[in-house]
Amino acid sequence: MNGRPDSLVAPEERRVVLEVEDVSHYFGSLRAVHDFDLTLHHGELVGLIGPNGAGKTTVFNLLTGVYQPSEGSIRFSGVELVGLPSYEIIQMGIARTFQNIRLFANLTVLDNVRIAYHPYAGYTVVDSLLHTRRFREKETELTERAQELLSIFNLASRQDEIAGGLPYGLQRRLEIARALAAQPRLLVLDEPAAGMNPQEVDQLMELIHFIRERFDLTVLLVEHRMRLVMSICEWITVMDFGEVIARGVPAEVRSNQQVVEAYLGRQN
């Protein structure tokens, strides 16, 4: 396996966005992830599934520099990510959301998004100390962009509300908006449907499709809801006990005996 299902012919016209090769990670002597491979091409929507404790979130944390892999390499657009601090990885174009929402709960909705625009603010410390003309121009521009993004997410009218006070579904949406404000090319979503009712999950599916087109993204998605994963992902990687046990398009995965045993079988 080279990080893609064998059955899928690599789309030649599409750039490789992310290449994860032989990544392993240990917590002490516990092997959380072992020889993990993943190759994402531009514009793909890929799911990462597996039972609880399979190491999915650890993979996300390795991708975003929260943990440093014990072995292996992660390349994003050809640039090695291993050894880089999280914020640089994010600035290079990987953005993520969290399993349990981590907004800046006491700040306004607008500020949540504006914070993520910081690397692109375009003014210096001196500008912000003196509130120069440049500062005012750039700040206005930044605010407008943030507002534009919020309006895309139907959050514009709530821009002055405190983020922690939003209803749950909107907090999820705001978190995605904030991730997009960091201007990613790869968006990694950690269980975006957690805690949502079926109706909200439907909306979320549409949302993910929509932002992928709108922002020209590659999306990697960890999810428990089979319905969500099976219906929107182009292909799926299945993990169990830190190892990849299957890859393929949803139909293949669904019929894979190992997967059924490890995961789906328990649901039957």
């Binding site: 994003f76 657009s77 640039v79 090695e80 990510l81 050894g83 880089l84 640089e88 600035q91 290079m92 174009g93 201007q183 090319r185």
Partner: peptide
Amino acid sequence: LLRRGNGIALRR
């Protein structure tokens, strides 16, 4: 973005 990426990481 790629230019940015190069600036950050490649010359390390």
